[in-house]
């Protein structure tokens, strides 16, 4: 189809923007994000919707790496998002440290927890892994309620202080804008990572772990790295949400979100991380912003997932991409047609 991509290029001098890996997704993603931000404007409710979508998207992007690239379904992501959120909450209420510290500490702690959980469950896969990680998520929220002196118990932590960057405090709109940019950047970077040699190994791990092992890479170790990366990204999502909401409780990140996050890439398309983002936007639109179907939005979403799974396993973006490839092929065949 596009074997010319591979022809040895004489020099890197002929740098071509269109050949930058992942640029197409970034372009379309940013365009959609810009339209959404235009739609949001100064409407407070819509800003909240965007914050939710951003959080969903980041949790789904976090799961994307181990689940859709490496093929192991860990469901402890409510805990990882919670760790990111509580990092912001604790740094904000219990210390005088700058809030930026929380953005660093949260993802790192989440990654470490993911590595520990990954070590304990390294021999599990499929249903067993799903069950243990679900139980871990439950145990984590039980722990948040029990550890009242630290976590504030079931009341959680509130009255978080705003960010202060060298005397500049961003407005709410700026925070929303910033988090949208974060999602776009992470989706773009993950898209590139997917295409990179690292991504090639991790994606091979999913279908042919024996081949990866036989090529010289320790599969369990690389799996841990993938889990850590995913947990860190989900923690960023948790931190963003907590900062925007100004509070966090053990109920902020429920197992419901984890289930939604499994389905988002299926809706949007598992082929690229942007599918997870598209799925998150759709999920928020259906579950939170569908006045006519307020109560049934989630049901609609669930049924939609079943239908997509049965009829369009590549998801909405996957279908769009197929369509694009076909149109492209047609256009190339008759370049001066029309």
């Amino acid at each position: 189809m596009s074997a010319e991509n591979l022809r040895p290029r004489p020099a890197p001098a002929r740098w071509d923007l269109r050949r930058v890996p992942g640029i197409g997704g970034l372009f379309l993603g940013s365009l959609a994000a810009a339209l959404i931000m235009f739609w949001v404007g100064s409407d407070g409710y819509r800003q909240t919707l965007v914050t939710s979508a951003v959080t969903y998207a980041l949790i789904a992007l976090g799961m994307y790496v181990p689940y859709l690239m490496a093929g192991s379904l860990s469901m402890a992501y409510s805990a990882y998002a919670g760790i990111g959120g509580y990092a912001v909450g604790l740094v904000s209420t219990r210390t005088g440290l700058p809030l930026a510290v929380a953005w660093l500490v949260g993802p790192i702690v989440a990654a470490l927890v993911a590595v520990l959980l990954g070590l304990v469950t390294r021999r599990l896969s499929g249903f067993f892994l799903a069950a243990v990680t679900l139980l871990f998520g439950m145990a984590f929220s039980a722990f948040l309620i029990d550890a009242e002196p630290v976590s504030g118990g079931s009341g959680g932590l509130g009255n978080l202080r705003p960010l202060n960057l060298f005397g500049w405090t961003p407005s709410h709109y700026q925070v929303v804008l910033g988090s949208v940019v974060v999602v776009c950047v992470i989706a773009f970077l993950l898209d590139r990572l997917r295409l990179s040699p690292w991504g090639v190994i991790v994606r091979t791990m999913r279908d042919a772990p024996r081949a990866v092992e036989a090529a010289g890479v320790r599969v369990p170790v690389l799996n841990l790295v993938a889990l850590a990366l995913g947990a860190a990204i989900a923690a960023v999502g948790g931190a963003l949400f907590t900062y925007s909401a100004g509070s966090i409780t053990p109920d902020t990140f429920t197992l419901n979100i984890v289930f939604l996050a499994i389905f988002m890439p299926l809706i949007g398309g598992a082929g690229t991380p942007w599918g997870a983002v598209a799925g998150a936007v759709l999920a928020v639109e259906l579950t939170l912003n569908f006045p006519a179907f307020q109560a049934s939005g989630t049901l609609l979403l669930a049924l939609g997932v079943l239908v997509i799974m049965l009829l369009a396993p590549r998801g909405v973006l996957g279908y769009a991409d197929r369509l694009r490839v076909r149109t492209w092929a047609l256009l190339r065949k008759e370049p001066h047609g029309g």
């Binding site: 040895p8 993950l190 990572l193 990179s196 040699p197 690292w198």
Partner: peptide
Amino acid sequence: QMIAGVFVGMVRPRMA
């Protein structure tokens, strides 16, 4: 190398 590969992969996904 696996950890570094994440960042290298994001910066330079495809090499001639």
